[in-house]
Design a protein around this nucleic acid. Structure first.
Length: 221
DNA sequence: GACCAGGCACATC
DNA sequence: GATGTGCATGGT
């Protein structure tokens, strides 16, 4: 995929949708919790769960760390997979207190590559969650890849069919300037496009990329 | 009722 | 190394 194609897509999306003001969370910790809760889950469900955490007054590292995992699961029930995700939040907090004295600033002080390694070594935090935390909670220049990214690029023939997460991430990071604001906006715009036009069943009418080339069997992506 | 949602770990071949 | 499965709620 060429630099020009990446630039064209960004320009089209920004012209159509404008700035997205991501991440939709007020503090680094809220962003981290949201990143874990939104795994394979609609954001509106995550909002309900985060609302429950706020209402219960436990949306801080100390309070969540002290909370019983069963009680945590009940609070985040609307986000789905609540038992799994309660464990994942606990795993993150255990690591934060074991190695960083419970202080997000100390975790965020790591350089980007070390931060990714640290996050990826926590059970329940995979590539997209780690990179979302790095970019949106700690302002590290890491490009976030998600299901929409692969689907959109695949349908336009801009990716090898077997491209993995790291390949796609490096494609963007090696093509774009190393700019946190740009990475922030680009990923958010791809999600916006995905929600409106690039679901498994495509809704191409009015899509800002409608006139761009598509692969032969693009609906299979 | 079917489909979808901003994944991940684990089992199996 | 690729592919399949469980995890679960809530909106369209």
């Amino acid at each position: 995929m060429s630099r020009q194609q990446i630039q064209t897509i960004y320009d089209r999306l920004f012209e159509r949708f404008g700035p997205q003001h991501w991440w939709p969370g007020e503090t680094p910790f809220e962003i981290i919790v949201g990143a874990i809760l939104t795994q394979n889950t609609n954001w509106t469900n995550v909002e309900k769960a985060i609302g429950n955490l706020k209402k219960a007054g436990v949306l801080t590292p100390d309070k969540l760390h002290a909370l019983d995992v069963g009680a945590l699961a009940e609070l985040i029930r609307p986000a789905g997979y609540f038992n799994i995700k309660a464990g994942r939040l606990k795993h993150f907090l255990d690591r934060l207190f074991e190695r960083f004295e419970g202080q997000l600033d100390r975790l965020g002080a790591l350089p980007a590559d070390r931060l990714r390694e640290e996050l990826l070594s926590i059970k329940g935090i995979g590539p997209e969650t780690a990179d979302s935390i790095a970019l949106y909670a700690f302002d590290k220049p890491v490009f976030v890849v998600d299901a929409y990214t692969g689907r959109i690029l695949g349908r336009h023939g801009l990716l090898e069919p077997q491209a993995g997460y790291e390949e796609v991430r490096m494609l963007f990071e090696s093509t774009l300037p190393r700019d946190v604001r740009l990475y922030n906006e680009y990923h958010a715009l791809l999600v916006r496009l995905g929600k409106e036009h690039c679901k498994p069943k495509p809704q191409c009418a009015g899509c800002p990329l409608e006139d761009l080339p598509h692969t032969i069997n693009w609906q299979e992506y």
